[in-house]
Design a protein around this nucleic acid. Structure first.
Lengths: 163, 163
DNA sequence: TTCGAACCGTTCGTTATCGAAATAATAATC
DNA sequence: GATTATTATTTCGATAACGAACGGTTCGAA
């Protein structure tokens, strides 16, 4: 029914991916609008660079809805935003779409395979593996985290050697 | 620089995913606008349903650009479209973004992992590691894929043992 | 000290997309 | 034969997103 990358929050309001990311990122650490843009650019290696004309209105809107608030005006007339309690609740509600988002991603991937032609197998295999790894890590009890991190570091080292 | 799912064709014109899909689908077999919508719905299990108000203008536009043409008016006053030669060329040009699209998909996936990955909060460490691992894999020459897969499998085995 | 580059935000016209309603033909069914 | 469901397209106002230009700040290097 909806667009491809739109998620509905409990109050019925549709939220786009950028909004989702803003809430998520601010929940980790308060930052400025510019900081958010830089973070996205860095994380996607420049493949996704939302327009400022898209981001700033979203920030204003989220502030109006009291999901975020200005915490200070730093240097460079930088407006630092942080999540409010209400914002945290909204984010949690949004994150319940985790399964749906995975499903969407999968369908999207299939569409691309369809359009751009097959390359079955090639990436299929290791992507699946990484998914599995992620899943295990995510459900690991905290006391085994350290072991897992060590294992991953070892794996990373091995891969670097291959490279 | 551009939006997340926009591809530029040789003439510089930006094409969205829906346009791409239309050209692709019509290249396989002529069909109506409604047929295209049904196909998308079927292929994505209803997760993506572009608005008619989005599709039909695109069809009109593509017709104006002479990338597609009406081949007949079938029953139910159905307008059947097919690709023109010019349309086929455009599609081929568009498909050259295959690599770019894969890269985008991967970055997107990472973003989602980032956003939806278990809310723990102090995940930073292993999230970063997995990110790095993914990155290395993504840029590995094909002939080293096998080694990488082996390494990952070993890692997965280790993790399972921890668990 | 001047200059350029990175930082930070706003404004605004254009384009893209949505979503819901209006219209109508055909098929299925009862 | 009337009713309803499905197929099929158009229209249009509302919203979302873009992107380019502008104005200002801070920092470091020449």
């Amino acid at each position: 029914m909806p667009g491809l990358w739109r998620f509905s929050s409990h109050n019925g309001k549709g939220r786009g991916l950028l909004t989702l990311f803003v809430l998520h990122s601010l929940s980790k650490e308060p930052k400025s609008g510019y900081g958010l843009l830089k973070e996205i650019e860095r994380k996607t290696k420049g493949l996704w660079m939302p327009s400022k004309g898209t981001l700033y209105p979203i920030l204003r809107q989220l502030k109006d809805e009291e999901l975020i608030q200005m915490v200070e005006i730093g240097k460079r007339s930088k407006n630092i935003f942080e999540l409010t309690t209400k914002g945290k609740e909204t984010l949690i509600g949004l994150r319940e779409h985790r399964k749906e988002s995975r499903e969407k991603l999968l369908q999207f991937k299939n569409l691309f395979s369809d359009i751009f032609g097959e390359d079955k197998g090639e990436d299929e295999e290791d992507n699946g593996l990484i998914f599995e790894i992620r899943d295990i890590i995510a459900h690991l009890p905290p006391d085994k985290k350290n072991q897992a991190v060590e294992t991953l570091e070892k794996c990373l080292g091995d891969l670097k050697r291959i490279q």
